[in-house]
């Protein structure tokens, strides 16, 4: 079975976001594999080990994103593809188009993406890519079984559970709870360097950057307003209740 994993390198979730000159500063920031994509990598490796085949990683990103690919190769993926071309960096629309172009002439049975990336959090790449490729999709899965051509997924629906049956080829997106990702082993890290890494740009893909340009325009990036400390009421309990109702009406304007 040929499994494709769509992977994004993101900020470490413990990093503090700093905005400088209207952009998020990458100074001294540690980058990691997007945690949801890590579930995707783990599931792909497990399925490959069960039924055979190959795991190919695909990312769109700058040079530094190769580190995330190497880490996933060290976990056990077989090969990696990176589209490293600034003209092809954009919003979800652009990225899904670029990924579709990479995949359209490749053989794949199963595509696994993360439910969303922890940086922009759009959750659109998986669904958009499935539409581009015209294959079925199951999002936010917490379990997957592949039996021949038949695929059975358990899907997290806002805390409820849906069981979905479909067939290959299919695109699924990984939700927390799907698995417990392994660490890259040290021998895996040693072997990762020797695994194939394909580097592509717009001309390799025969893709006109203008045709996939982001329709989204970012006007401003800002941090959420600092939260004020809460107000603690005091005095007689009956008076406190009265004051609270007053405040909810007039100040908070929620009732």
């Amino acid at each position: 079975m040929n499994i494709i994993v769509c992977l994004k390198q993101t900020f470490d979730t413990e990093e503090k976001i700093v905005i400088e000159n209207g952009a998020i500063s990458e100074d001294g920031v540690e980058f990691i594999i997007n945690p949801y994509d890590e579930y995707a990598v783990e599931e792909a490796i497990k399925l490959r080990d069960e039924v055979g085949g190959e795991v190919t990683l695909v990312t769109v990103g700058p040079d530094r994103a190769e580190t995330a690919l190497r880490t996933a190769l060290a976990m056990g993926a077989d090969r990696a593809v990176i589209v490293n071309d600034e003209e092809l960096f954009g919003d979800q629309f652009t990225t899904a188009k670029v990924l579709a172009t990479v995949l359209k002439d490749r053989e794949y049975d199963l595509i696994i993406a993360g439910n969303m990336a922890v940086d922009n959090g759009s959750g659109q790449i998986g669904p958009r890519l499935a539409e581009e490729l015209n294959i079925p999709q199951v999002t936010t899965i917490t379990k997957i079984d592949v039996d021949g051509n038949k695929v059975t997924c358990e899907r997290d629906v806002e805390g409820d559970l849906e069981i979905i049956e479909t067939t290959l080829p299919v695109l699924v997106t990984a939700q927390q709870g799907l698995n417990e990702p392994r660490y890259p082993s040290l021998p895996g890290i040693m072997k990762a360097k020797k695994k194939p890494m394909e580097r592509l740009d717009a001309s390799d893909l025969n893709l006109d950057p203008a045709a996939v340009q982001s329709p989204t325009v970012v006007e401003e990036i800002y941090l959420p307003a600092k939260k004020d400390a809460g107000k603690i009421l005091s005095g007689d309990l009956a008076d406190q209740v009265k004051e609270l109702v007053q405040l909810l009406h007039n100040e908070a304007k929620v009732v």
Partner: peptide, 12 residues
């Protein structure tokens, strides 16, 4: 790159 990957793996 490998040493850095190992450092992160061991740290995690």
């Amino acid at each position: 790159e490998e040493q850095e990957m190992m450092r992160r793996m061991v740290r995690d």
